[in-house]
Design a protein around this nucleic acid. Structure first.
Length: 786
DNA sequence: GTATCAATGATTTTT
DNA sequence: TCATTGATAC
């Protein structure tokens, strides 16, 4: 078969071994996507499997689309179009839509995005009079999200003594009740949030065996990409669906697991071997992407992690250039360096703009980079950040669509009932919301059936009735008009178009243009019927759009640009020249993510992902000072810089210029990399290895972390306080879930660790003394190894 | 009920 | 720094 040409032995084996459970451990750059696509094509073309019976799950729409394209080139477009290939969320949204009635949802249920979820939570907090500083909406949502991803429903949550105890220990004993209320309100609104798409699929299969069996039988072959990033909800769906035919292939790389923060469980990939005892394991270890230096550097880094599957990534590619490290004075300086370096590389080596990527840990870092690139007229594209679909004007129009399709959608209603202004203000809304909660009804139903019983003045009543009438008129068009015709009608009739057109400021014009762009998008969507016989309707569009991200909006004719993105969104991509910026302690690894060893290991995997994106050359940069929340803070170089074997690094001539010794006795002297220099005015002293507690590379965590608080800088640019190592706080191995001993309370279990050094706090449950909150600074906890 | 201005507080990563 | 919230005046 010619589609097998050019595959190496391991790749070929992974393609041809079609049946039974298979796991493909695919190192970075080892041709994973190729194997997956050829494998699917092979199933169809050689084994004659009906594409309708193949389920292929990915993490991003982009990955799904690209794979489909590649499969189409082998088996033909029409065949490929019938594959069930997409993200977990989009595939199961599709299935849920077909089965929604079984769970009591309307078929045109809304998908709440993160903002909607947060807004629901805010509403409840306000009504319940809870302090939104104690119950931060983001955190409440994160907690609910993690619960759902671990298949813990609101009842289970409230019945789980440990969870509830943990909450009340942290003074947030209403979390369970909040979760319950949140779920109730979403359901009442006929809405599922992102996590519900997976959670409810689990419910569907659990409570409706006949439905589960239907899908079990349908999906004869199941393939899962990026298996290391699946959470319990996803894992369980896959396991359930695969139980019948057991033709399951999972592909992944434990070293690239970077989504634990949202519930991904690396154990899923580590346990596959136990789950399917007669599985076959393929290891793809040859890297085709990167130079020898890059592969070596990445290996030396990831070697510091403890939780991983042993494997050796190797390459036949030449060594290539060493990895460069650049120290910048400030974040703007860093941007200027990167921009200039891109400019000169571009000129000297004739590299197109799209050959470069700038990767950073947090979206906030993009600004300095953007400014620098703009100054040199280098075209760039930012991935992530505020996407098109998050713009206010877009969300507003989408809210009209949502309300039309599902009038119970409370968030949509709140958003637009008075936009454009039609005299329905805050007071009216509050009355409506109170009444809705009293009766347990969606606002829409109140307005529709009980408008006259709510005690509104005639004027207000008229405004409300007009609104209802308008939405109802849109609803009658749902079945008679195409998505585009209806969308355009709504944009005009609602008054949104007029409102935006009237604004002649540059921003206003751009908002109007965005509106037009959305409508164009819907037109394209309406017209695109290649895989369907019936015209696509507005509800179809909404499901699609809710799960779309900015990355799905790329214009193929305008893609010769430098890419700017977070490391997370760079996963799966590759670029000849990669700049990884902001390699500073507290930023990368991120302050919020270095509480436990597992967290730190995830940060390290993230850096591993970043490094392995590069084909030709990687450049690592860090700044000595950086604006954070608007004020200048001093930064220390990232520990990750130390963790790469220095033989893969280029140590710049800057060393000599700074008057540092370099090899006075023929190569045996201490080679001090520039980020370790002692003398720079700006360089905040990091405790020397001898002074600081040794960092054990196996546990990869300082036995007693130096304070990593951001230090304010005074006018002379010197840190106000030296990095203090006082207050040894974190005992070795202390993390959530371990058993500890306290000199007064005896043995206890650590439920939670929070705060930042030196104010790290642990919530510990002692059977003898109950829940205690302990400042690690004072409580001498001893970790017990059981 | 609406518009304007000052104060406030947030930045980890995404479907 | 910037975006969102709260108070004030219209």
């Amino acid at each position: 078969m010619d589609h097998l040409m050019g595959l190496n032995k391991a790749q070929k084996a992974a393609v041809e071994h079609t049946d039974g459970p298979n796991m493909v451990i695919a190192g970075a750059g080892s041709g994973k996507t190729r194997v997956l696509t050829v494998r699917i094509a092979h199933l169809m073309a050689v084994k004659g499997i009906d594409p309708f019976r193949i389920l292929a799950l990915t993490f991003t729409n982009k990955a799904a689309r690209e794979m489909k394209e590649r499969i189409a080139t082998i088996v033909g477009r029409g065949e490929a179009a019938n594959l069930w290939m997409g993200t977990f969320h989009s595939i199961f949204a599709r299935i849920l839509r077909a089965e929604a009635h079984l769970l009591g949802y309307p078929p045109d249920f809304t998908i709440y995005d993160t903002d909607d979820s947060r807004s629901v939570i805010k509403g409840i907090l306000k009504e319940w009079g809870l302090d939104d500083k104690l119950y931060k909406p983001n955190q409440v949502h994160a907690r609910i999200s993690i619960a759902k991803n671990n298949l813990i429903g609101p009842e289970e949550y409230m019945n789980d003594g440990e969870l509830m105890a943990g909450d009340s220990a942290s003074g947030r004993d209403k979390l369970g009740a909040l979760y319950m209320e949140y779920a109730t309100r979403c359901f009442r609104a006929g809405a599922m949030d992102f996590d519900d798409l997976l959670f409810n699929t689990n419910l569907l299969f659990r409570d409706h065996p006949e439905t589960m069996v239907k899908y079990q039988q349908r999906f004869q072959y199941i393939l899962v990409d990026e298996y290391q990033d699946t959470n319990l909800a996803q894992y369980n769906i896959v396991r359930t669906l695969a139980a019948r035919h057991e033709n399951i292939t999972v592909v992944g790389d434990d070293s690239q697991s970077i989504y634990a923060f949202r519930g991904a469980n690396i154990q899923n990939i580590l346990n596959f071997r136990k789950d399917y005892e007669d599985h076959v394991l393929f290891k793809l270890e040859q890297n085709y992407r990167s130079t020898g230096n890059l592969v070596g550097a990445a290996n030396s880094l990831i070697d510091k992690n403890r939780d991983r599957i042993e494997k050796t990534i190797w390459t036949q590619n030449g060594d290539g250039e060493p990895i460069r490290v650049h120290r910048a004075m400030s974040d703007n300086d860093e941007g200027a360096y990167v921009a200039h370096d891109i400019f000169s590389t571009k000129m000297q080596r004739q590299v197109p703009d799209k050959g470069f990527a700038i990767l950073y840990r947090t979206n906030a870092q993009s600004r300095a980079m953007e400014e620098a690139l703009r100054k040199l007229n280098i075209p760039y594209r930012i991935y992530g950040g505020t996407s098109f679909y998050q713009r206010k004007e877009i969300k507003d129009l989408l809210a009209y669509f949502r309300l039309t399709c599902n009038p119970k959608d409370e968030e949509a209603l709140k958003r637009i009932i008075n936009y454009p202004a039609r005299g329905i203000g805050q007071t009216t809304m509050e009355k409506l919301m109170v009444a809705a909660n009293e009766h347990g009804l969606p606002i829409w139903e109140l307005l529709h059936a009980h408008l006259n019983d709510l005690g509104f003045h005639a004027g207000t009543r008229k405004h409300l009735a007009d609104f209802v009438l308008m939405i109802d008129s849109f609803r009658t068009m749902l079945t008679t008009h195409s998505a585009y015709a209806l969308a355009e009608h709504i944009a005009r009739t609602s008054g949104m178009m007029r409102e935006l057109f009237a604004d002649r400021t540059p921003e206003g014009i751009s908002r109007y243009d965005n509106l037009q762009e959305l409508l164009n998008g819907i037109k394209e969507f309406s017209d695109d019927q290649e895989d369907q016989d019936t015209p696509r309707t507005l509800p179809d569009f909404l499901i699609d759009v809710a799960l779309l991200t900015d990355a799905d909006n790329e214009d193929p004719n305008d893609n010769d640009r430098v890419s700017l993105m977070t490391v997370h969104s760079a996963k799966g991509l590759e670029f000849p020249y990669v700049y990884i910026v902001g390699l500073e302690e507290d930023l990368f690894p991120n302050l919020m993510a270095v509480q436990t060893r597992a967290d730190l290991e995830e940060e390290r995997r993230l850096f591993y992902v970043a490094l392995t994106r590069a084909k030709e050359r990687a450049t690592l940069t860090y700044a000595l000072s950086r604006y954070r929340w608007g004020n200048l803070t001093a930064c220390e170089p990232s520990r990750f810089l130390d963790e790469i074997d220095p033989k893969f690094l280029e140590l710049p001539a800057a060393m000599e210029r700074m008057g540092l010794q370099s090899d006075p006795d023929g190569g045996h002297a201490e080679r001090r990399p520039p980020w370790r220099s002692r003398s720079g005015i700006f360089t905040p002293e990091r405790p020397e290895p001898t002074a600081a507690p040794a960092r054990d590379p196996r546990t990869a965590r300082p036995t007693s972390p130096p304070r990593r608080n951001l230090k304010r800088i005074n006018d002379h640019g010197t840190p106000l306080e030296a990095a203090s190592n006082a207050g040894s706080t974190m005992p070795e191995g202390l993390e959530e879930g371990v058993t500890v001993e306290h000199e007064r309370f005896g043995k206890g279990k650590v439920l939670k660790i929070e705060g930042r050094a030196p104010d790290l706090k642990a919530t510990v449950f002692f059977p003898s003394a109950g829940q205690k909150q302990l400042l690690l600074r004072f409580a001498r906890l001893r970790v017990l190894n059981d």
